[in-house]
C-alpha cells in the first residue's frame, strides 16, 4: 500500500468534509458543550447540577472502584472538594468517549455512505488506487480529525476545570492518570471501532443521514458506562480503562478484518445498497 495515495484520499475527503455543515456542526458543537459549557455551568452554579442522587451516595458509589491512593486522598477532602473531584475526574469522563464516537462516525458516514449517495464512488473506484489505499485514506479522514477534536476538547476541559477549581483545591485537578489513559489509549480504540462499524452500516444504508441515524446506537455502550458509574457497578479508573481498551482493540481487529473484506470494488458497486 502506498501511503502517499492513502493521504491523497484523506486530503480529498477532508476538503469535502470541511465544506459540509451537516458534518461540521455536530463535531464542533458537541465537544464545545462537553468540554467548556457544561463544566462552566457546574463551576459557576454550584448545586444546580442534578446528578440524580445525593452527593454522598454518588461519591460512595464511584469510589467503590477507585484506587486506594485516590480513596486516601479523598479522605482528607471536604465534602465540596470530594463532590467536585468526583464530578470532574469521574463523572465527566464518559462525555469524552462520546466525542470521538460521534465525530468519527459522522465523518465516516459522510466519507463512505455519503460518497455512495452522491454517486461519486464509481469514478473513485475506477482510479488506479488499490482497495486498501482507498479504505485506509477514508478511515484516516474519519480518525485523525476525531482524535484531534478529542484532544483539543481534553485540553480545553483541563484548562476550564483547573482554572475553575484552583480556588477550591489550591492545586491542579487535571490531568490525572485516568484521563491520560482515557484520552490517549481508550478513545483511539473507541474511535476506530466506531469507524469500522460505520463502514459496515454504510454498506447497508442508502445515504449519509441514514448511516448517521443508525450510528447513534454506538452511544448505547457509553450510556452504559454513565449508568455503571452512577450505580457503582464500575468506576472509570485505570484498571477498567485498560481492560476496556484491550477489549476494544480486539473488537477493532475483528471489525477491520471484516471491513477489508467488505470494501472491495465489486462489492461496493453491486452489493452496497
Amino acid at each position: 500500500m502506498r501511503l502517499s495515495k492513502a493521504l491523497l484520499v484523506f486530503r480529498k475527503d477532508w476538503r469535502e468534509v470541511g465544506r459540509n455543515w451537516e458534518v461540521l456542526t455536530p463535531i464542533a458543537l458537541v465537544p464545545l458543550l462537553f468540554s467548556v459549557v457544561l463544566p462552566l455551568i457546574v463551576i459557576s452554579v454550584p448545586g444546580q447540577v442534578n446528578t440524580g442522587t445525593s452527593p454522598e451516595v454518588l461519591i460512595e458509589s464511584i469510589m467503590r472502584g477507585a484506587p486506594a491512593s485516590v480513596m486516601e486522598m479523598l479522605a482528607g477532602f471536604t465534602e465540596d472538594q470530594q463532590l467536585t473531584y468526583v464530578l470532574f475526574v469521574y463523572m465527566f469522563a464518559p462525555f469524552f468517549l462520546l466525542i470521538p464516537v460521534m465525530a468519527s462516525s459522522v465523518i465516516a458516514s459522510d466519507s463512505f455512505a455519503g460518497e455512495k449517495e452522491r454517486k461519486t464512488i464509481e469514478a473513485l473506484l475506477a482510479t488506479p488506487l488499490t482497495d486498501g489505499e482507498l479504505l485506509f485514506g477514508k478511515m484516516l479522514v474519519s480518525f485523525v480529525p476525531a482524535m484531534a477534536i478529542t484532544i483539543l476538547s481534553f485540553i480545553a476541559y483541563t484548562v476550564v476545570v483547573d482554572v475553575g477549581t484552583y480556588g477550591l483545591f489550591g492545586a491542579l485537578l487535571l490531568p490525572t492518570l485516568e484521563w491520560f489513559l482515557l484520552i490517549f489509549l481508550m478513545t483511539p480504540a473507541l474511535s476506530l471501532a466506531a469507524i469500522g462499524l460505520t463502514v459496515l452500516i454504510s454498506s447497508r444504508v442508502k445515504g449519509f443521514k441514514e448511516a448517521q441515524q443508525i450510528s447513534v446506537v454506538l452511544v448505547i455502550p457509553i450510556i452504559g458506562l454513565f449508568i455503571g458509574q452512577g450505580t457503582g457497578a464500575l468506576t472509570l479508573g485505570p484498571p477498567v480503562i485498560l481492560a476496556l481498551t484491550a477489549l476494544l482493540a480486539f473488537f477493532d481487529l475483528l471489525i477491520f478484518r471484516f471491513s477489508v473484506l467488505l470494501f472491495k470494488r465489486e462489492k461496493v458497486l453491486t452489493t452496497w445498497k
Binding site: 495515495k5 491523497l8 480529498k12 476538503r15 465544506r19 452522491r118 454517486k119 464509481e122 482510479t127 488506479p128
Partner: peptide, 26 residues
C-alpha cells in the same frame, strides 16, 4: 473512463477535482 454519472465532487472546485484525479492516476 466516463461513468454513467459524472461522478464529480460537488463541494470541490473544478481545479480541485482535476488535481485529485490527476494525482490518483499518477
Amino acid at each position: 473512463i466516463l461513468t454513467e454519472n459524472p461522478s464529480l465532487y460537488d463541494r470541490l472546485t473544478a481545479m480541485e477535482n482535476m488535481e485529485f484525479f490527476a494525482e490518483a492516476y499518477g
